[in-house]
């Protein structure tokens, strides 16, 4: 009995102390973590939209939409939003920027991915391409959204709605394009229903 009581008391004290320490530490680190997340979000938005002065955050039907605006102008310069989808090995999340009429893409940035290092990860940066390591995400700038974005393999894109696949990472390249195609209509509908 005495032994049992000791076990319970010791474990309770240890877990209670642990809880206290973690709660305090969480209070210290939480604002810093939130700050980094906000900085990352801001950086992503400014990467995918043309130059803007401020952005407005709107929650439409559960979709967070960031609208970039220039001071003294009612017309936005572009609309950014985050979408998710499955890639080759796991989830890919992408920040997409489009012009206010949803006719073409202004830029994309991959925020999270676990694709094959050295192949699929070229959707973020391609160190093997010395002239432009960011050729894959950058080629989306200006791509036309109608009827939809298409992927071409082993050739230079000829049409305004085409992008070039990464050789050796076709599934990942297709996944990025599919994620964009699949989500853009939904965001467009909810954005235009508000305006």
């Amino acid at each position: 009995m005495n032994k049992t009581a000791k076990m319970v008391i010791v474990l309770t004290v240890i877990t209670a102390l642990s809880g206290g320490i973690l709660a305090t530490w969480d209070g210290v680190t939480k604002p810093k973590i939130a700050y980094h997340q906000l900085q990352a979000l801001k950086a992503a938005i400014s990467d995918v939209l043309p130059l803007y002065d401020t952005y407005e955050e709107k929650n439409i039907n559960g979709n967070m939409i960031y609208i970039g605006k220039i001071n003294d102008s009612t017309q936005p310069v572009g609309i950014a939003f985050k979408v998710d989808g499955s890639g080759f090995q796991g989830n890919i999340s992408i920040m997409i920027g489009v012009d206010p009429n949803f006719t073409s893409i202004t830029g994309i940035k991959v925020l999270g991915q676990i694709e094959t290092p050295g192949l699929g990860t070229k959707i973020v940066v391609d160190p093997s391409n010395k002239t432009n390591p960011f050729w894959f995400p950058e080629q989306f700038g200006g791509v036309v959204l109608s009827p939809q974005i298409d992927v071409v393999k082993n050739s230079i894109p000829q049409n305004p709605n085409e992008v070039q696949a990464i050789s050796g990472a076709t599934i990942t390249s297709n996944a990025v394009v599919r994620i964009i195609n699949d989500n853009i209509q939904r965001i467009k509908d909810s954005y235009q229903s508000e305006n």
Binding site: I21, L22, W25, D26, V28, T29, K32, I33, H36
Partner: peptide
Amino acid sequence: TVADKFLAA
């Protein structure tokens, strides 16, 4: 957990 939060912050 302390180390994890420290790295994240």
